[in-house]
Design a protein around this nucleic acid. Sequence first.
DNA 1: AAGTGTCAAGCATTA
DNA 2: TAATGCTTGACACTT
Length: 303
Amino acid sequence: MLGYPCMNRTLRDREEPLRCNRGMQKATFEERGPAYAADLARQNLRDLRTILEWNNEHGIGFYRVTSTLVPWNSQFDLAELETYDELARLAARCGDYVREHGMRLTFHPDYWCRLASSSRDTVERSLRAVEYHADWLDLMGLARSPYFGINVHIGATYGDRAATAERFRDAVCELSSGARARLTVENDDEAGLWAVTELVEQVSDRVGVPVVFDYHHHSFSDRGLSYREGFERAAETWDCRPAVHYSEPARLHGADTKPQAHAEYVAGVPGWLRDRADVMVEAGAKERALLRLKDRAATAAEH
DNA sequence: AAGTGTCAAGCATTA
DNA sequence: TAATGCTTGACACTT
């Protein structure tokens, strides 16, 4: 399966925009509190169902859900919301649809989720972030498996790689069983950060967290492994179908940007990767990049 | 209605 | 020691 992250531009551009990432700034949250967050969450969950239907109708089975699905969820528990039952019903409608159609969802908490931080406060906030993503998956009734993963980066070395890996493993062991069962870890996009091999050896082999192979990031930290070799190392850490990320550098498409920047579209996902994994295509044009790929494939088949 | 500056959270780099 | 980039949309305020 192929997938795309978070925003469906086609549905967002409608007269009545559909989206599942309504949020608010701090001042508004302080003024209006969890009740307003619950109202936005209701609209987000309602639209998520429609986005999933649209995806399915367009042959897209894989989707990354935004972390703003329930805005400000770090500040309250879902269960304490007055509209909890309604949110639970709306979430269940999403999960039911996913299961009925054999689809796959993942989450990707933002870059301040730092489970290996040298600051204990940051670790605790990060643990909390993973937990509330897991709450959402529970609410949807989706399996406690990395198939419905919560994907994070280590994202720093704090000047001591071994100590950082150890803190990450310790944090993994602090998670609830439901959250831990869903956690995945992805290779970083800088040479000095975490490469596939390091994640496999220092995290996955020790505490069983599967490694999400990011094809583009691998080019910054390949440690001498080809793309295929990097993928193979990561694939061994999965006991279900691996999830991987694929994107192409914007530079390859003529943009004058830093090497890490993603292109708007992708020319094509390698067949060997598609055969073995579900591929999250991270392209600026989001779902339109996938539609273009399918279009190209159909055109090629005619010739 | 359209335009603009700013935004919860972390870290590394630079000035 | 303090500012900046990351990556990007969307919020919130101004015109």
